[in-house]
Design a protein around this nucleic acid. Structure first.
Lengths: 228, 228, 228, 228
DNA sequence: CCATAAGCGAGACGGTACGTCTGGTCTTTCA
DNA sequence: TGAAAGACCAGACGTACCGTCTCGCTTATGG
């Protein structure tokens, strides 16, 4: 957009370093103070920047924190552990680890809370966080289809809807477990959740939600085919 | 609570009507202003009460809102629609309807956000909201077991863990869908979600997540028994 | 006005001590910082008061400083030194001494400057400062008339106009000397100014503006002894 | 000053037009906004100039306004109306007319206020405004002496002191009347002031401060007819 | 005739005060 | 003696201006 003109706009250009420093300072302040006690003056001071600079780039606390938190989730990677079940467990554990960090806990929920009254913020969350991380679901499905664990998709629209659904179920379950129920999403819980997700309520119930058994357990969709 | 003692304490008794008026005023203010712009002064004014009275009964904004929001979820009922799938769909739609109301949206997420830095608030949320609504899961399971849709439970501890897991998955999915992804949890989505929950990823995928097809579709765990 | 109702208004009454503390703090801050660097937060801190309290009572910096400065001039007294000339010299020296204090210098001129764009402030200055100090002129004239140094007045309106004129001439001369010309209004200057005021340009010139001569000099209008 | 060297310094020379535009813009901004709301950015914009250019030539708001205001007083002229009294009345009316202009009102008092804490500014005011206008007093005295209205001066130092005194009395009275007392220095006031200045308090009182009487009145020192 | 040097418009920068608002507490008077 | 009213201290909010700085460009003189 700004590079269309052959020569840069007049005036002193914005400091590129400042942006990174501010986002890092925001996360640091979130860790120490939490959302409600976080002040923009404090963020500015930590970043070695004037409050004005901060307001020049973000409209307020909400927008700033969305960007700061969004970066946290960019480190999520879908590991290739050989089976869909193991892949899911891997990425869910990563997600749980991020949500165990205070800056993610306070920040994410706070901006979601604010977004209930602010469509622009809602859009920003969707763009910066939700849509960006849906790649994990798509990637996981492709890999599972390549392995033959999941059937191919004919209807692209339906496939997209399904990816959305799975994303909400997975992300929602982990968030609710860790933040609302306020219990840890530890390995055992992740294993049982994955089994439920893959097998469904009835089969998972019959399989005993074999979470405590550390013996390797179900290895994916095939785990169910026990009586085939 | 304060009226349990047989003889009232000396002095003017607290107005019983005030509590209800305050909680109602809190919800009304949440609707209009959202969490961050809600002030206790405003709530007090709406309730026709002095700010002092408010602080005499609640420690602060957070506690007040937890109580105001908790009441909203008490109206949830598990309908008896003849099958586990239909029961789930019914209660999930009710839950989605509550989350569509602005006072629930703003209030719930806000107190959850605050609770990330406040153990007492976390406990209050768990007591007033989470544990109180888990009854729905237990009730649903009992009913499904009575119908023969789900097997009986031997291990009480494991059964409790499973109930918790299901609660997090259901509540988490709906919350994430409506508040984070910011998409409506409409009938079609609820149908597809229920199918995923009951059948699991693999089978649901094979069944085509028949959400748009209004043909009644799978009716619970037996829907899967395709090759029995 | 507020005492017309038999019982005071509900709520906590304003602290009487705060007003005095704030005005004193304002003068102290004017001494140290001058008008332009004076901040209301600083005044509040010095007075041991919150900024809110300050804004509850004054609309802004200007109004506050008018009141703080006005008090300074209330200490002016017309000494009885036996002759009109000596009385004038006495009060002018007092006025010069006040204008030598930094809080008076900065404060007075600053609010006058602001008042050029603000009719309300102009009125406040007139009420709090100008009209309040005109008493000195009236008192001096009465005394001089009693002594026979000045003729009695028939026309009350004309007498008032004359008092205004004399006030502007005296106050204006001292202010201009000390603040605009930035020279001290010392005893010698005051003596020469008084002579000019009493004798007028022509006679004073002939009398040689006997300022340096410390011999007691003219003792009033008769000093000119024009018809001796 | 910089043109003393035969060849100008290297580099692009400063725009001569800019200075005039800036001073004019400053006066315009003073008229519209007054001192306290006047911003250098605004002046720069009005003058079609960058803020940098402005700071390259003046140290700050104060210095700029002194220069802008000083120019206003340069238009003062001592008219030759035939008598000292009439000459004084003429120049005082001109001075009052200038002080009736908002840029002069706000600007002059504001820089005087600032100068109370800033010796350099005080010096600048003295040089640019006070000393420059004292010419009027000297000129008036010369003319009066030529006419025989005032005696000649033997002592040059005393004469200078007297000129200073008269300047402070005249300028101070007009400034105080218009800005502090906030009353117009109209023709009637100017006539009465001139009479006071020439005759002194006692004689002027006896002469009745014949301001309202439009009969031509006193025409100078002779008006008193002291030797009749 | 092009290099050097200063001036120029634009606008971001670190600071800082503004005046407002809210949170909680404390002190009155009324019922 | 509790409740309503409202003043109190504390401190964050978002805005505005200050005076400085960095840009890329322009306009002079001077080698």
């Amino acid at each position: 957009m700004q590079s269309r003109t052959p020569h840069a706009r007049a005036g002193r250009p914005r400091s590129a370093a400042a942006d990174a420093a501010i986002l890092a300072a925001t996360r640091a302040a979130l860790v120490e103070l939490g959302w409600s006690k976080l002040t923009l003056q404090d963020v500015a001071t930590r970043a070695g920047v004037a409050k004005t600079t901060l307001y020049r780039r973000w409209a307020g606390k909400n927008e700033l924190v969305v960007d700061a938190v969004a970066e946290l989730f960019d480190e999520l990677r879908l590991p290739d552990r050989g089976s869909l079940a193991a892949d899911i467990e891997g990425v869910v554990l990563q997600f749980a680890a991020i949500l165990a960090r205070p800056e993610a806990r306070s920040g994410l929920m706070a901006v979601v809370a604010e977004s209930t009254r602010d469509a622009a913020l809602r859009e920003r969350i969707r763009t910066s966080i939700v849509d960006r991380q849906k790649r994990l679901v798509l990637q996981g499905r492709e890999r599972a289809q390549a392995r033959g664990e999941l059937p191919g998709e004919d209807d692209a629209a339906a496939a997209a809807r399904t990816a959305d659904l799975i994303f909400d179920v997975v992300a929602g379950a982990v968030v609710h477990r860790t933040l609302v129920s306020a219990e840890p999403a530890d390995e055992e819980w992740v294993r049982r959740f994955t089994q439920l997700l893959l097998l469904g309520l009835g089969d998972a119930a019959r399989a005993g939600f074999a979470g405590t058994a550390g013996q390797g357990g179900p290895d994916g969709t095939d785990a169910r085919g026990r009586d085939g």
